[in-house]
């Protein structure tokens, strides 16, 4: 009997991709479709994400990962015909990891900016709401392209994960994402206080490519996440200041709770957000939602968002979505 015949996980399973024999290649991804019905605008349906993951890990010190994302693939609504008019594709992530030792991995390529927790796990099947908190994307670029050193060390018998990165987006990512970094450096630390509680801190110094004034921003953030059984509490807060006196400093943040309902598949979600804005007073919103997860890689969501000074970044309205990790 061969060793390959002993292997019991060669079959495809939802949420873990398809392994191509013993090549080390794995193909998978996720999809998300939503209906947005803003209170003051026409409703629309959209396949917002169709992402393809390609992972290569043959057991050597090198590991490759890429995510090719189709955004706004299909869209239609109250005042627009269903069509592909907004469809666009890009490599959301594309990097090579070199494992130096247990404490250090060197990453080269395009990756998600490690600021807070939401941004690095933002895929629709992994988060509880259709809408994304403003604080997790508005004040920084969600991607960076360059070099990252990351890993973990033990501190007081607990794990401390770190990542330190430098961005050179212009050189490495000619097909740039929305609001890319022009250049920047940053770091993120995450400390596991126990199996249920983790706290994180982010720092970044950057300029954005779309900012014609070449203004330099300094960002600091804190995040925490607690989960026990099916209950969750999480929060992120960021503060961004700039070199120029005429650019407003901003605070943004959110706190979210998730609790199981009825059975192990239904969840109630509540979130409060606040966000300073360049052109308006501080916005505030509350989100109340329901999520149904018949299986962990598959989720249906329904939520209502209501707030003040939120028209531009997080308008009032109803959203529903379906997401699957495949």
């Amino acid at each position: 009997m061969s060793l390959a015949a002993d292997d019991a996980d060669s079959a495809y399973r939802l949420g873990s991709g398809y392994a191509v024999d013993e090549t080390g290649l794995r193909i998978g991804g996720y999809a998300n479709a939503k209906i947005d019905a803003p209170r003051a605008a026409p409703f629309y349906f959209e396949v917002t994400d169709l992402s393809l993951f390609i992972t290569w890990d043959n057991g050597s010190r090198l590991r490759f990962f890429s995510e090719l994302e189709g955004g706004d693939v299909l869209r239609g609504g109250e005042d627009e015909a269903l069509g592909l008019q907004y469809a666009h594709f890009e490599f959301e992530r594309f990097y090579l990891d070199t494992l130096i030792d247990n404490n250090l991995t060197i990453r080269l390529g395009k990756f998600l900016t490690p600021i807070g927790r939401w941004n690095v796990i933002h895929a629709a099947p992994l988060v509880w709401t259709t809408s994304r908190p403003v604080a997790t994307e508005n004040s920084f670029s969600t991607h960076a392209s360059g070099l990252m050193l990351h890993g973990s060390v033990m501190v007081a018998n607990r794990q401390l994960e770190y990542s330190v990165y430098g961005d050179a987006t212009d050189a490495l990512d000619p097909h740039q994402s929305r609001e890319p970094l022009n250049n920047g450096v940053g770091a993120h630390l995450r400390y596991y206080l126990d199996d249920t509680l983790q706290i994180g801190a982010s720092f970044a110094n950057f300029s954005l490519n779309d900012d014609l004034s070449a203004n330099r921003h300094h960002l600091a953030g804190l995040d925490f996440s607690w989960s026990y059984q099916k209950f969750e509490l999480s929060s992120e807060i960021v503060y961004r200041t700039s070199d120029r006196a005429n650019v407003k400093d901003i605070w943004q943040g959110f706190a979210q709770s998730v609790m199981p309902l009825f059975s192990q598949h239904w969840f109630a979600v509540g979130r409060y957000e606040f966000f300073d804005q360049e052109l308006d007073k501080t916005g505030q919103v509350g989100v109340l939602g329901l999520a149904y997860r018949p299986l962990p890689p598959l989720v249906w969501k329904l939520e209502y968002r209501l707030g003040t000074h939120n028209e531009l970044l997080a308008p009032d309205g109803l959203s529903a979505s379906f997401a699957v990790l495949f």
Partner: peptide, 19 residues
């Protein structure tokens, strides 16, 4: 499974399963 779904999103697969 929630943990492994997040890891999968970051290109890391769970331990190999033997029969």
């Amino acid at each position: 499974e929630d943990y492994w779904n997040v890891q999968y999103f970051n290109g890391i697969t769970p331990p190999k399963v033997m029969a």
